[in-house]
C-alpha cells in the first residue's frame, strides 16, 4: 500500500523528470568544453596515424627495401609496390603508391615495416578534390618524409620503448 502510494506520488509530481531537468539545467550553466578547431587544437598523440611518409637514413639513402610486407598486410589494398635490384645488389622500390582514398589509416603498414620506412605522421589537415592527386607516389612520400623528418624522428623516439 505504502509502495503504491509512493509510486503514485512519484508519478504525479513528475519528480524523476524534474530531477533529470535539474541535471541538464546544471550542464546548461557549466563552462563549455568545445575546442574551436581551426584556432585551437587538441593535443595529438605521438602514435597519431595521419598522412603517410617514407623515411631516409641519415646518409640520404631511402629506408624502404621493397620487402612488400606492408603491401601484403594492407587490409584495404591501398599500397602498390614495384622493385628492382640495384647494381650494388641492394633491393629498392621503383614504385611505391598509396591510394589515399582506399587507405583506412589502420597503421598496419607502419607496424609491419622492418626498417621503419613507411610511417604515419601527425599531419591530418590535407584534402583531395579529384582522383589523380589522391595517389601518393614514392617521390611525394619521400618529399613529405624529408619535410617532417624532425617531427617523425621525435615521435619515434618517444614511442620507442613501447615497441
Amino acid at each position: 500500500m505504502l509502495a503504491f502510494l509512493k509510486h503514485q506520488f512519484k508519478t504525479f509530481t513528475l519528480l524523476e523528470l524534474l530531477k533529470g531537468m535539474v541535471i541538464t539545467g546544471k550542464y546548461f550553466l557549466k563552462k563549455k568544453i568545445t575546442v574551436r578547431y581551426p584556432e585551437e587544437k587538441t593535443p595529438i598523440s605521438p602514435r597519431f596515424r595521419g598522412h603517410h611518409a617514407l623515411r631516409r637514413y641519415e646518409g640520404g639513402e631511402e629506408r624502404c627495401i621493397a620487402c612488400k610486407l606492408c603491401e601484403a598486410v594492407c587490409p584495404a589494398n591501398a599500397i602498390t609496390i614495384e622493385f628492382e635490384q640495384r647494381d650494388d645488389g641492394s633491393r629498392r622500390t621503383t614504385q611505391y603508391d598509396i591510394d589515399m582514398f582506399k587507405c583506412i589509416y589502420c597503421g598496419f603498414c607502419e607496424e609491419s615495416c622492418p626498417t621503419d620506412a613507411i610511417v604515419e605522421t601527425r599531419v591530418f589537415e590535407y584534402e583531395f578534390h579529384e582522383r589523380g592527386p589522391s595517389i601518393m607516389t614514392k617521390d611525394k612520400l619521400l618529399d613529405f618524409g624529408d619535410k617532417h623528418e624532425s617531427q617523425i624522428a621525435e615521435d619515434r623516439a618517444v614511442d620507442a620503448k613501447y615497441r
Binding site: T24, K32, T34
Partner: peptide, 10 residues
C-alpha cells in the same frame, strides 16, 4: 544553442 549548451557544447 540551448541543446548545445546542455551538452556542454557551443
Amino acid at each position: 544553442k540551448v541543446i548545445g549548451f546542455m551538452q556542454i557544447r557551443m
